[in-house]
Write a protein that binds this DNA or RNA. Sequence first.
DNA 1: CAGCAACTGTTTTTT
DNA 2: ACAGTTGCTG
Length: 821
Amino acid sequence: MVQPSESSPSANEPAVVRIAPPGTGPGFESGSSQRSVQFGHDLPAGEDPTTHGLNPQQLEAVTYRGPALLIVAGAGSGKTRVLTQRIAGLIRGREAWPSQILAITFTNKAAAEMRERVEEQLGGAAEGMWISTFHSACVRILRREAEHFGFKKNFTIYDSSDTKVLIKRLIKELQADVLGLTPGNVASKISKLKNELTDVDAYARDANMSDPTERMFVELFRRYTRELARANSFDFDDLIGQTVYLFRAFPHVAAAYQKRFRHILVDEYQDTNHAQYSLIRELTRAPQPEPDDYLLGAGPTGIEAASLTVVGDSDQSIYAFRGADIRNITEFERDFPGAKVVLLEQNYRSTQNILSAANAVISNNFDRKDKKLWSADGAGEKIIGFTGYSGHDEAQFVADEIEKLHSEGMSYSDMAVFYRTNAQTRALEEIFIRSALPYRVMGGTKFYDRAEIRDSFGYLVSVVNPDDQLALRRILNTPKRGIGPATETQLATFAETNGLTFRDAMRNVEGLGLGPKVTGSIRALSDLLDEAAELADTGVVADVLTLLVTRSGLLETLRNSRDPQDEARAENIEELQAVTKEFEKNNPDGTLIDFLTEVSLVAAADDLDDTSGTVSLMTLHTAKGLEYEAVFLTGIEEDLLPHKMSANEPGGPAEERRLFYVGITRARKRLFLSLAMTRAQFGETAVAMPSRYLQEIPAELIEWRQSPGMVNSRGGQQSRALNSTGRRGFSNGRGGYGGGSDQPPALPRPEKKAWPNQVTNQVRDNSTLELVPGDRITHVDFGEGRVQQVTGEGAKRIAHVIFDAAGPKKLLIKIAPIEKI
DNA sequence: CAGCAACTGTTTTTT
DNA sequence: ACAGTTGCTG
């Protein structure tokens, strides 16, 4: 069996899988204080490595044997440890071969981590085990079985933006935009339907076809489905849904997997959607006897259904928006009669203060099983609260506190900043860059979303999967080679009328009667793709990419451009070449298809880099499953958390509260909650109100450095740094707010734009500014100060300054808003 | 067909 | 604020 691609790290961070040394770096949920005793080789003689060091509930979860087991694992209760020891125990006790194990995790990174830890327990005997995400596992199955239902095994995967491009084209063709249908809303509706395993025909049966918008939507859905099939492609949702379809339509195919996988384990079960649930149901069915078995008189197969272990926490269900159905976990016992349930409530991660805050917040969600996390490790430090005047002010607080923790000996990689929306990174990044703080934004998937990278992938996909018309159209005139929309349409029509693929139309371009110049361009492109395909059969991925980007002129066009940004774009392509070389190194037998599959399925959390020594920035969603010594939860404001888009949705506010809960429970020792009074949005500054969830935390757990009540409308004139130091103890014992009131005081209403965005408007370049210790400087926010020391080289020179009022700061000289006096 | 200026809507979260 | 798109001109 081919080794799965999920055992290699994401192509974005292509080095070897990194495991943080105990106690450092962002760990996966593992019960940090238990870590030192978890591996067999540390044990005294005679101890059972599978069960050593477990509490009674964990022990039960590891050793229980039966058809179905639900482990209700509160945050930080050591569930990953329980899962890995359970797997190791099954294999060590000869109850299962590695190849009979299927473990499903939420991200590739979590899968790699789990594999690593199982191997460590077993001394490397995990060969043949499937530990992967739902999507990766389904790709593996589909590649092997695609030919059963009209796909080829070289299929490619459409990500959400590919999907949108295709739908956009269809909307244009059908002029569906006049009915208010946009690529966004059509794509999300189709995705929802697929998550419910509803296909076009099923939907059309119940649709109100007298409604023109509805009728149009059905037509779009139908064409979208047809186009995907024609392009030999699956979208994200298809990967799951089509696998379920495959199993249901071809019982003998399903039986092969039902027989193979004897133990199925699913992590983060609370976030499974209906399609994923159905997949698990199919896999845990007892295999049906095949026709041949009857002929041989074998009767029923006699093979029992696989055993199923699921781990989850309904309080951490945060993906309802993409179809996750909390009932999958709440009704588990009904779905699998005779299921055993084990509750893990002891927390090995956080201090009691942090857990008490988390418990208090989540207890406001009614309709949940009461569950209280507790720790044996003591109260710990208080939670720190802070209210800034603006998002930048808040960011400055975060940066200052990070510096402080760092100077006290905490590694940057042990700290993380969370936020609700990706847009909030801007202010944080600006301040962090200025403060010369090493940071890294997780997810955002920025690299693979850049146009030049997508173009490069367009070439690669066109080579691997010539049926993909979308990829071909993307590269047809990129770089510019004189093939406009008119020519593109002619090619498409020619293909249509002659029953050819778009790619074949290109191969026969001479038959179209186009101008000699255009014909020549298409011929050259077509030949290049053929040559690359030949190379892909024998050569390595990196060479194929190099051939394509050089011979197509993509790279050269960018290099010769006079747009200064194109230089960076060319560098991005070179970085992609480096990524393919790394892939090559990690997967010596990896094909181009493997490479494309891997990058298609990287998740936001997959590019975590444990050893990089940087602060991690990420959304609350990405943070799930991770833990850090110190956590900063930013933007704890109404309309942001809970987000205003969630207000109308049923269950919205409760889900947002779970999101807050997830954020709180990521912290081991230190937790910081911050908000701003005004926040820039759409370039305009709007007033923000403290989040309702803040009041749910008992006041005695929070020490407000600057409470919402302390901030007044004149505050914008003062620098935060002037009045934030040394004040403490504003709790009054009742509400969560300082300043003497029980309820969050009504915030003042400053005029719009009362405090124009002080940071972003200032584009400056101080790269020529020379500073030496002793110089007096003035800073836009911090006032006057004296340079103590200058470190770093060139563009990275950092001034260490003690400001008269704001105290010590580090500034990146190139971009800091400073002047020499 | 390419390049430029003006104009739009967009931001909730993600495999 | 910004990117992506439309519409005009050469």
